[in-house]
Design a protein around this nucleic acid. Sequence first.
DNA 1: TTGCAAACGGAGGCAACCCTCCGTATGGTG
DNA 2: CACCATACGGAGGGTTGCCTCCGTTTGCAA
Lengths: 215, 215
Amino acid sequence: MTDANGAAYGDGAAAAAGDGTSADAGSAPADVFARRPKRADARRNYEKLLSAAREAFAEAGVSASLEDIARRARVGIGTLYRHFPTRQDLFESVYVDEVEALCRAADELAGLPPWDALAGWLRRFVSYAATKRAIAEALNHDSPVFATCRKAIDAAGRPLLRRAQESGDARPDASFDDVLRLVGGVTMYPFADPAQLERVLTMALDGIRVRRPPG
Amino acid sequence: MTDANGAAYGDGAAAAAGDGTSADAGSAPADVFARRPKRADARRNYEKLLSAAREAFAEAGVSASLEDIARRARVGIGTLYRHFPTRQDLFESVYVDEVEALCRAADELAGLPPWDALAGWLRRFVSYAATKRAIAEALNHDSPVFATCRKAIDAAGRPLLRRAQESGDARPDASFDDVLRLVGGVTMYPFADPAQLERVLTMALDGIRVRRPPG
DNA sequence: TTGCAAACGGAGGCAACCCTCCGTATGGTG
DNA sequence: CACCATACGGAGGGTTGCCTCCGTTTGCAA
């Protein structure tokens, strides 16, 4: 954690990912990782650990105790370590789950009009970012898993932005990265009042939209 | 940290703070806290600890080791505990420093046109938020110090927003809280590229501005 | 210069966490 | 049903951080 180069959503450099392919490219990387165990009991414990970890990280932040996670999952500490030898492994697995869901969402929104599709996906992104919040700072940004996830998100969301830009709805000078930063930042702290989240999100989306003469 | 009610910039409820008073209200609360020690050596160590803490929190996050902070400050661990009996005390002291600077900035910008003053202050707020980032999640939101700081920020920034709204520059449906959320979120993760920060910040400010017919 | 209140430093007891190791339990296959 | 590869649990040793306590040092006022 001393490196302090927290390039949250990437640096905007690695653009050429799922370039030409349309929005359904998001489903492709889903099976690149996901190394679930085979035996029934092992698989059960694996899932229990994963959701306990998601919970614990959301609650206590990055430094949630691994022993506590095992306790929540009602599983021995040894079992935790067998499935996830390092803390990083646990982060990554939780993170990957979230990314997969996000990519799936892009597919489902592909049928809508350009701006609605983008806005809808960004709304979904907000809830992803909320989960990610805690994990993000601890993620090892050099890990191949992280890189793959970045590409998957790109492949899922970038076409939505481009489409909205081509239709004249989204401002052309905004990069995909810029947009994620703006929208993702909004939920860095949890909102007590969902109505406020809605207001703030609207402002953010307005900042992304092209300014049209009213009427 | 189990409470998980991270109401980041307040909930927008406590509106009536430094109401009628103009922008210079920001300087008032500066001496409400700031309980500096008297003896020369004590004062010296106090300052050394404070800046060591600021450094450590920025680098290692909330859970920076207190022993490490003492080490950085080249001071015995006992000295740290005498000045700051609890971890909270240390957070608060660092935080208060930052808030004071932010309030001073509001005074300095008071002469500019409404929108420029608001935008300028929000830019300043961004760098405050960056420092605050690590500390924020650990701040005890019930502490009187925190409440005082909230009021000070309100007193400093709210008039700027109102002025910009009255002049027709800022959208009238945005609360002060909404604005801080939006702008503050932007820097939740540090930017590697300052140009990107500028782009994203511009989008955020555009989201706050009233949409005028172009030309 | 002297005296003492104020401040200093860090040893050490305690708690929490990390991770390994190994004896035990069990799913699933032949 | 019997076997064994696979998986389980948790005791325990090592590390680190928290915080208190107390003998020593130091600023400063008389």
